[in-house]
Amino acid sequence: MSGRSESVSTAGRRGADWLGPLLFTVYCTSYAAFVAVAAFATFAGGVPVGGLASEAVAGVPWGIVAGFGLIIGAFVLAVLYATLARTPQDGAQK
């Protein structure tokens, strides 16, 4: 019984081991893309040319859409991680 529980726990742990880096890479790439667009694709010679200055989405400017996306996206990934990376030990520790 204990051995089975340990192996399930180890499997759950292994899940957390790859899930964390995967989700981190997803978010890191999104954040880097946002920063790069703000720095290099939004202005040329001080004049808005595209990027965050592109036409708004449903009346909301791109900068706000991207910002809200990064904030809400962080929470969504965090919940995903907390749900999928749970191990049987987590339940026992409640």
Binding site: P21, F24, I71, A74
Partner: peptide
């Protein structure tokens, strides 16, 4: 500031 919490959580 909020993005920084992703580093805290995952790493």
């Amino acid at each position: 500031y909020l993005a920084g919490w992703i580093v805290a959580l995952f790493v």
